[in-house]
Structures are given as structure tokens and as C-alpha cells.
């Protein structure tokens, strides 16, 4: 029992090792992968990087750590700026996060500055409601990555399941699945999603995730289907069938591992596509519901005001670089997977 498990893992470990080595053999891939990872981390730790509450502070003789994550009633009325006044009065200390503004914080020391250009206080300026652009960009990374990763997770699950089943069982089911894929590809994505958002109403970011997941699985399904069709005629699958293994086992052990590479590549490009869709929808005003920070939403603010280059430039650059990095990674991955 133990031995068999080891052998099964051995094949895929070798495969992963080869793909890894080929992928990281190219410098551009390392840079791109690192950039994507950084953006992911930024999204994950957005509350610590850009927050209106300090990372840690001591006021009234009491030390509080990470009040942004664990709300502290005593600190409810304070933000990074007002707490400084309090400390100057009563003593204590505070450790501000790298970006000392919250994504929805409007007042800084009681004043609101709309559309102020980049300066030493707001490194990348403020938007039309007076919120710090840098803070919103950090939280926008969270939105982008959340939508990108989780909608592609749905896409991949749906696509692999339907594509593999259709190709494996063939005949009638294959034709049905094919017709479904063809039908869904015929819908222009933005019209379909705008239509759905208009009909159902924009309720939460998860709705967007589900909509993108439910409409964009066709790419993965098509790739899976093609690969499975190629694999089921291989001799080792015939051998597995001759051994009398169940369909599920053949699919899981013998067919699907061969599909892993192409699906991974397709999903990587899919993440870039999903991020673009999210930002485009947010730009149009039908993506993430309003208070949520999004790169596309920041650019939309610039579109409405028709000035403020910092609102166009920085979020756009972040978006473009992220998509570019993911595409480079996808390209590198497809090279790395193809050769083996």
C-alpha cells in the first residue's frame, strides 16, 4: 500500500520538477512570477499595508496590536492621524502602516481634499471623493486577485469536469457539451455580463465571481476536451480499461494527469482575462459594488472628471503590469509544459 502510493506520486513529482526547472530557467518568467506573487501578497495583506488604523499602538497605557483586524472599541474614533494628536497630548506610541490611509477614508485631520495631485502626504494623490489613491490601489489588488483567482477556480472545475466527461464518454454527451461550449462562446462577454448585472442587480463581488466563472469556463473545457480526446486513444488507457478499472479511476489516474499541463496554462491566461473583465466592468460602473476599491473604478473616476492624470496613470499601470506579468507567466508555463 505504501509502496504504490509512493510510485503514483513519483511520476507527478518528476513532472512538476521538470516543469519547474524549465519555467524558472528563464529570467523573464522569474520576474513575472515574482511580480504576480507580490501583487497576490499585497492583496492578501491589504489591510496591513494600507489601513486607517495603526499596526500597533499604546494609548492610555494600553498596547493594542493590529486594531484593523481585531476591532478595539477604545480605538474606534481614531485613525492614523488623529492618534498622533492624542499621543502628543497624553503620551504613548504608535506604529503606522506603510500607507497610513484606509481605502474608504475621506477625512484626513478633519479636512477633505478632492482630486489633490500627488504630494508628500498622498503619494499618488486622491480621487474624486478625497480617498487616497495608493490605499485604494493596494485594496484594488485584493479585488483583482480575488476575482481573478476565484472565478478561474470555478472555471477550471467546471471546464475540466464537463470537458473530460464529454470527451471520455463521447457520442451524444460530447455533442451536447460541444453545442453548449459553442453557444456560450457566441455571447459577447461584456454584453452578457452587463445584461446579467442589469437583470439581477449588483449585489456583491461574489456575484461577479460566479458570473465570470459561469460564463468563461468554455476555454478550459475546450482544452480539456481536446487533450482527453487525444489521451483516451493511448495504449496505456486501453491497458487500464483492459484491467477492468472503473471509469472514475481511469479518468483520475490515467487521463486527467495528462491534461494538467494544458489546463494550467489555459487557467493562467484565464486569470489575466478575468482580471481584465473585472476592471473593465468596474470602469463601466457595473463591477464591484461601489465602496469596494478596484483599479478599473479608479480609472472611471478619472473618466468622469476628465482631468487628474494620476487617476489614469497609476491604476492603469498596475493593471497592465499585472496582466502582462500573468501573460508572461502563462507563456513561460506553456513553453515549459509543451516540451515534456
Amino acid at each position: 500500500m505504501k509502496k504504490r502510493k509512493k510510485r503514483d506520486l513519483g511520476i507527478s513529482r518528476l513532472w512538476f520538477y521538470k516543469v519547474n526547472r524549465r519555467f524558472y530557467g528563464r529570467f523573464a518568467n522569474v520576474i513575472a512570477g515574482g511580480f504576480v506573487l507580490t501583487i497576490c501578497l499585497m492583496g492578501l495583506l491589504a489591510d496591513l499595508i494600507a489601513s486607517e488604523k495603526p499596526l500597533a499602538c499604546k494609548i492610555d497605557g494600553k498596547v493594542t496590536i493590529l486594531p484593523a483586524l481585531f476591532p478595539e472599541p477604545a480605538l474606534q474614533d481614531f485613525d492614523n492621524q488623529t492618534i498622533l494628536d492624542k499621543i502628543a497630548r497624553d503620551g504613548g506610541w504608535t506604529l503606522a502602516p506603510p500607507v497610513p490611509f484606509g481605502p474608504n477614508q475621506i477625512k484626513v485631520w478633519g479636512t477633505i481634499s478632492w482630486l489633490s495631485p500627488p504630494d508628500s502626504l498622498h503619494l499618488l494623490g486622491t480621487d474624486g471623493t478625497g480617498r487616497d489613491v495608493l490605499a485604494r490601489m493596494v485594496h484594488g489588488a485584493r479585488t483583482a486577485m480575488l476575482v481573478g483567482l476565484s472565478s478561474i477556480l470555478i472555471c477550471t472545475l467546471l471546464g475540466v469536469l464537463l470537458g473530460a466527461l464529454a470527451a471520455y464518454f463521447g457520442g451524444f454527451w460530447d455533442r451536447i457539451a460541444n453545442a453548449g461550449i459553442e453557444t456560450l462562446t457566441a455571447f459577447p462577454t461584456l454584453f452578457l455580463i452587463l445584461g446579467i448585472q442589469g437583470l439581477l442587480g449588483i449585489s456583491s463581488i461574489w456575484q461577479l465571481v460566479v458570473i465570470i466563472g459561469a460564463t468563461r469556463w468554455t476555454d478550459v473545457a475546450r482544452v480539456t476536451r481536446a487533450e482527453v480526446l487525444r489521451t483516451v486513444n493511448e495504449e496505456y488507457v486501453d491497458a487500464a480499461r483492459a484491467l477492468g478499472l472503473s471509469h472514475l479511476r481511469i479518468l483520475r489516474r490515467h487521463v486527467l494527469p495528462a491534461v494538467l499541463g494544458p489546463v494550467l496554462v489555459s487557467a493562467t491566461f484565464g486569470i489575466a482575462g478575468a482580471i481584465l473583465i473585472e476592471s473593465t466592468l468596474s470602469f463601466l460602473g457595473y463591477g464591484a459594488p461601489p465602496p469596494t476599491a478596484s483599479w478599473g473604478g479608479l480609472i472611471a473616476d478619472a473618466f468622469e472628471t476628465q482631468s487628474a492624470f494620476w487617476l489614469v496613470l497609476f491604476p492603469g499601470l498596475a493593471l497592465s503590469l499585472t496582466v502582462l506579468a500573468i501573460n508572461i507567466a502563462g507563456e513561460g508555463l506553456s513553453d515549459a509544459v509543451d516540451v515534456i
Partner: peptide, 14 residues
Amino acid sequence: FVLYSLPTFWVAML
């Protein structure tokens, strides 16, 4: 490759 990755709406705005 870079063109392929640029968001349409951003380029249009610029």
C-alpha cells in the same frame, strides 16, 4: 506581447 496585455479602456482613455 505588451499590446496584447494592455486593457482596452485604459489605452482608450490615454
